[in-house]
Design a protein around this nucleic acid. Structure first.
Lengths: 208, 208, 208, 208
DNA sequence: CATGAATGAGGGTTCATTCAT
DNA sequence: CATGAATGAACCCTCATTCAT
């Protein structure tokens, strides 16, 4: 009798609306009206399905993290070596391949900026990204070991290398959005993979 | 007879006000009233000395770039080898040592987010940072050559390495502001220097 | 399901609000808050229904012109001779009879002043009034012909006479609003009609 | 010892500044800064020489009236007949001949609009213009008498004719500033003189 | 007298949020 | 669930006026 709830669909629509608008106008510049228009919905609906504007942002953060996780799994399909799995991580995070959303990158910068000033956004962002950083460190450790480093040493190195690589990926978003002259679009992922390889090779030689 | 112009001093005061507020509240969240209060000035003065709020932001971008350049020169004092000069660059960009402004990091993220949506901010930011990227690449080239790499190869590698390192520094700002759990404050610069060293050592070995 | 749109009604309310305030305080002196209060609406509604304050003014200009056109048609009812139709025009423009709005006159002066400095207002005003001037010239021509003047001559005279009479009406608004001592309210229309008659009589005599 | 006061000169400069700005931007749109710039003076000086902005306007009104009076006297030089003196009045008010200021016309409209909302401006304007209306009526009376009308009749007619002609002149300013398409610049004065002649001729004929 | 920096009230406008329908 | 009108606080900016020099 009651019509089936389409709440989840609507929420997804709205979150996607914010993603589009946020990428171009930043979070503060994304008015609820803009979001609703981008979602092809009436403005009032936004507050029917979300407590307030920030709740949409929090949902978006989680959606983006989920997207990244999904990509990761997808790319992992053909990865057999630890190094390949590390490359897969970099590609998943940076590649603008099929299924990737160009807005996504710009979006991330806007979200980061908002996280600086809003503790709750920061927290949600941390909850979503810290596991990814842990995963990254894990893959680095395995790759180092695979390259011949002693496990203990590898784990220690992976801690700081993970932070640096993660920063490089975050920074890649910033650079792509604010100074694309620095590196052509699409070239960042290979460049980072090449750097990864340089880090792994010498360990090989040390083992020799 | 007339009151001596103190416009430059006032402008600097206002820019500093924005820096403080922007670091905590983002650009959109930094109201003109907040900026004036942070600068201990009457609200109207902001628009007396600046065309509009954005003009203050543009001035801030240039101030930050100048700060970075100044730091660079200062740290260069003791650098004799090319590698030391590369380390100096990383330290200048990242170190939160004496004379460093903690706001500066958070500031940079807010500015980047604004650059995404405001072409003029992006342009000013680019004008201020592209020379720094070029300088970074230059130092990388020299360090690689110093480490034994053929000049031609060094220059080619420096192009993509420069982009990656620059991204890592930009990303370090983001990480420090949004997910400090990833790496303790102050540890990023050494970590990045260590990575730089790993990149330079093998060339040494190859030469051997 | 949704609330029925009452946009047109609200817009009319707001325009009327501006008419009242503009008559007393001029356009610059008519704050949006004043307009909203005069319309018994919340301040924010003005900008919900209009792009900006000027858009309200433009709508008002068109409303006033429509009012004048409507009055013209209404008064034409009993006019059989060309002279009567000319009188009707004068009365429609000037009479402060029943159904007339006292604010209307003061309003017109404020609008004219705004038209001096705002090209778009001038254009809308022109679009609204030039047809009226043409109509006035037409009626003058017919009245002159009816009074015995040759058609060709009548048309030539009507051109400059129309400009003068139209000016006199415009000026009557100014005089009524700024120097009512010059002529009692309500006396201007008869005075202008009397002048019209003096212009028509001699042609009669010349024919004789 | 004390330097000679140049107050009067400065006041005149400022008033002229307002005239220029007011003509283009209206009274409300004429900022004190604009006025000072147009007068090539420092902003602070305006308030040194005038109580406030309105005081400048009042001074301007009186200056304009004085200008009109001066023109009147000047043009009267060659006028021998009463009709010629009436023409002279019209020309003095409307003609854009030598010594005339194009701004003057636009100025007048802005002043009228301000007079609607500011009683003191209205009063000063009335004090300045009512004598001119009286003078106009006087000239009309004499012209009618000269044309053969009985003095008593002439005086009665002049009352309403004076109001109409004065309105026509006021309206001519409005039309020239807001709808120049209605009549070419410079054509209004001859048109009004022609109308005056038509009003005087028949009396001539009646006398015949 | 002159200068131009300083002040702060107030204006137009935006927009998150609410709510009647 | 859906709609879009309604609300009002808060923002950026302007500007008449003051005042230290």
């Amino acid at each position: 009798m009651a019509r089936p709830s389409n709440t989840e669909e609507r929420r997804a629509q709205i979150v996607t609306g914010l993603r589009r608008v946020l990428a171009r106008q930043g979070y503060a510049g994304a008015t609820v009206l803009d979001i609703a228009r981008a979602a092809r919905l009436a403005p009032g609906l936004v507050h029917y399905h979300f407590e307030d504007k920030r709740a949409v942002l929090l949902a978006l953060v989680e959606e983006l993290a989920a997207t990244l996780r999904a990509r990761l799994e997808h790319l992992d399909g053909g990865a057999s070596t630890a190094r390949a799995r590390l490359h897969a991580f970099v590609d998943a995070a940076l590649a603008l391949g099929p299924g990737a959303d160009a807005d996504l990158v710009a979006c991330w910068v806007g979200i980061s900026a908002e996280a600086v000033r809003d503790p709750e956004v920061r927290e949600v962002l941390a909850r979503a990204t810290l596991p990814l950083v842990a995963e990254l460190r894990d893959r680095i450790t395995h790759a180092l070991v695979e390259a011949g480093a002693p496990r203990r040493r590898a784990r220690a190195d992976a801690a700081s290398l993970g932070a640096v690589l993660w920063s490089a990926m975050q920074g890649a978003f910033v650079v792509a959005s604010t100074a694309p002259e620095v590196i052509p679009p699409g070239a960042m992922a290979p460049a980072l993979c090449a750097l990864v390889d340089r880090l792994l090779v010498p360990a090989d030689k040390e083992a020799a």
